[in-house]
Design a protein around this nucleic acid. Structure first.
Lengths: 355, 355
DNA sequence: GAGCTGCATTGGAACGTTCCAAGACGAAGG
DNA sequence: CCTTCGTCTTGGAACGTTCCAATGCAGCTC
């Protein structure tokens, strides 16, 4: 017995285990396990001895071993398509807060916006046996998402899904786009263009929302959509294309904040002042929009809430055994800042006259 | 034998294991293990049968079990103090690329800039037995960092260290600050103020670099430092304070980009045009600075390289058994954009006259 | 045809936990 | 004095891998 102790000591290089604690406290490994997990049926005196021994040895539970036997890691894997997009930072805040309060940990992995890298990230999380997966803004094909979902609960964030095997949390892009248009119309704008987001997540719905709102306001004839992307360059290129083809509109609704900043700069280049000559509305209310120097009117997505909801959906599948798909759509909110104001009298008249 | 098979099948709910694959392929678990890891000493015919069986069952290796026996997870834990800071996004790119090429995975956890949450994040990674830890911009006390470092190799990013047990990678903040000043001086500025970064990482060195450079240019008398922070508000408040106390300088070096954007806005508020009236230089060259609408002259940190270097330092300890501390300091680089230009003749004259 | 060699394959132990059925022990009850 | 009970404690099995020593077997040599 003391022989085996000697061997343990001699060979020890790594972390102390529950057996080391047991030996030092003079109890069995089982009791150590019980005590460390706070079981009420451990005699007070032994509990103290065990905690003391663990403390002295610098014992730290091995989550790997625990996960193996429990068949649960209590970890939620988060695949972030793009760390550079500030939009996701706050979503992650919501995920972490909600996960923590349910005794789960969130582990993040990123995909650098490339389908292949995203799959590597997901495969890694699956091999680590995370209890559930949150995919934030994935660009990879639905078939791969479904294949991941066949082995673990999956929630999609910022990408819609109708599948019963994959939950999703999105904001109501269509409604948000309508809010943007409604706001501009209420300021007196009628000549409102849209720089769209191409294949970006939610871009299609934002475009539809814009078109619907224009129609509802009787402005279908004034609606113009120019192609763009969710990038600064995309927004700037959209403005260039817009101004090349027609008279300057009095307002532009751009598909997201980053593109809106690009649009702001392009308008400036073209000699148009914002908001005096042209009003600009973005989408997402990222930290960028809130900068004093940019001060962009935009549509806010409840990002923390989106993250928290994603975790809740996961836990419902994990703990309550739900197996029907849930697709939550959260309402956005207009945030009025400095890039929108009523059009100048002349501009309005011109547009009215044209109709 | 077929009895136990039936039991396995009936009870199967979770993931298929190596045993399921072995059974289906008609070989032992050991051979499956060998084949899946690409050992050359498995007969071709069996290898194919095994791969086919694994494929059909949708087998996915259990990294938890593997880690337990190998006593290695091949995972590098990354604790990010703040996801909202774009500075770290690119550092993570470097970390991921370098880790991937060395067959490691990077797993990220965040601390929300609160020491307590940072410790939770680190503790989680330690319990998961990540092979090494990269702490990016941690705010927690050195004692805790040392305690983590006693059980696993730790590299600090964007926080200097002199300890032998903890490696670090930083940029040469002092040299970067000098570059900023040198640039302004070479444009003809002499009245150059500095809005500092308070307790932010590197802020102290940037301040020293500024003061040294001013002294070296014979401008010690013109040096002014006003307190700020690494935030937009910090930069704006710095400008407010600066202009309240004295005549407007012709140039300002602000401790980081975010604060510089705040400064830009504050200067605008005070009726000073940038760069016509005042030149502004930031630090970090984050994505923010590159926005066309902001176009900030700034000092670039080689962020990808910093991340990659952090991984390399970790691997040296892990694989080559290095145990002396290494503290790498990488050179920054000036990026000239639109917020700096020579001072107007009058302004220079005024300052010169004053001396 | 016995012994050797080398290759392909195998079973068992180990990793550090949790869980479970069962053990030890003293007190209470008959 | 023997049971029974309850409380606290224990050893062994299991989780899914990897690693290692050992086995089987074919072909070769003498």
């Amino acid at each position: 017995m003391s022989g085996s102790t000697a061997v343990r000591d001699r060979l020890r290089q790594g972390h102390p285990t529950i057996l080391d604690v047991a030996e030092r406290a003079g109890v069995s490994k089982s009791l150590v396990s019980l005590a460390l997990r706070g079981s009420p049926r451990v005699r007070e005196e032994k509990r103290e001895a065990i905690l003391r021994a663990a403390e002295q040895l610098g014992y730290r539970p091995n989550a790997v071993a625990r996960s193996l036997v429990r068949k649960r890691t209590n970890v939620i894997g988060v695949m972030l398509s793009d760390l550079h997009n500030l939009y996701f930072a706050e979503v992650v805040d919501g995920i972490e807060a909600e996960a923590l309060s349910a005794q789960y940990r969130a582990l993040i992995n990123t995909g650098s916006r490339m389908a292949e890298r995203e799959w590597v990230a997901i495969e890694t999380l699956l091999q680590l046996r995370t209890d559930g997966l949150i995919l934030a803004g994935p660009v990879l094909p639905t078939s791969l998402i479904l294949s991941a979902a066949s082995s673990v609960p999956v929630v999609l964030v910022a990408r819609a899904s109708r599948r019963p095997s994959v939950d999703s949390v999105t904001n109501d892009d269509r409604a948000g786009a309508r809010m943007a248009v409604d706001h501009l119309v209420s300021l007196g704008h009628r000549d409102i263009a849209h720089v769209d987001g191409g294949t970006g997540a939610g871009a299609g719905s934002r475009r539809s929302g814009y078109l619907e709102a224009m129609r509802d306001h009787g402005l279908a004839g004034a609606a113009v959509v120019v192609p763009g992307t969710f990038t600064e360059e995309g927004g700037a290129a959209g403005i260039d294309r817009l101004l090349a083809s027609r008279a300057r509109p009095t307002a532009v609704f751009v598909a997201n904040d980053l593109a809106a900043v690009g649009a702001l700069h392009a308008l400036e280049r073209h000699g148009a002042r914002v908001p005096e000559d042209v009003s600009v509305v973005g989408y997402d209310n990222t930290a960028l929009a809130a900068l004093g120097h940019i001060d962009l009117t935009t549509v806010d997505q409840p990002r923390r809430e989106i993250g928290a909801m994603a975790v809740r959906l996961l836990l419902q599948r994990l703990d309550d055994g739900r197996d029907r798909g849930r697709h939550v759509v959260l309402p956005p909110r207009l945030v009025v800042r400095g890039t929108t104001k009523p059009p100048r009298a002349g501009a309005v008249a011109a547009t009215s006259a044209r109709r």
